[in-house]
Design a binder for these strands. Sequence first.
DNA 1: TATTGGATCGCC
DNA 2: GCGATCCAATAG
Length: 194
Amino acid sequence: MNYKKVLSRKFYNRPAKVVAQELLGKILFHRTKWGIISGYIVEAESYGGRDDPASHAYKKITSRNSVMFGPPGYAYVYLCYGFHNMFNVVTQEEGIPSAVLLRAVEPIEGLDIMKKSRKTENIYQISNGPGKLTQSFMIDQSFNKEPVFKKNLLIFDSDNRGLKIIRKKRIGIKLGAEKLLRFYIKGNQFVSQK
DNA sequence: TATTGGATCGCC
DNA sequence: GCGATCCAATAG
């Protein structure tokens, strides 16, 4: 696998729903002390904006959501339901709170590490959900506010032209549930729900 | 200061 | 369908 260029912070300086779609087919990459873990992003959701009650930054800035208000290209990792880490990438310029939640990945490298971390041999169950993704990729809250355009956790460019993208309702939320802001690659076996 | 409920997962 | 298990946001 040759990793050509890392997506720059400019890539993320656009509306979340645009970035969410364009991230499909790009490569999530993590250099860990156990080895390299990587995979194609196959599913993402966008959050943010003045009219999205599902966004953590819907009402106001707080210590938890402050990174969403910051510059684009930084990770927003937080704990959900007590033990699942959610991995988001902040989008849009500073002051506009929005982010893309990465929900599923198709493994490329580091399957042994992923299997061990997830305690499963089934590659279709290894990273097909936001909580599973962070567990398999060894992403925890220590990555909150870390950049994804430099250092060890990165997203690489990849030619994703011609992908068929499905647009659906987001999963697991109540407010704002009618919005079609979940995107995934048509027919891909590694998305969380078909 | 106490309560509540959430962008989940895996097993029963 | 339910339990695991945490913390920010609310209300008091």
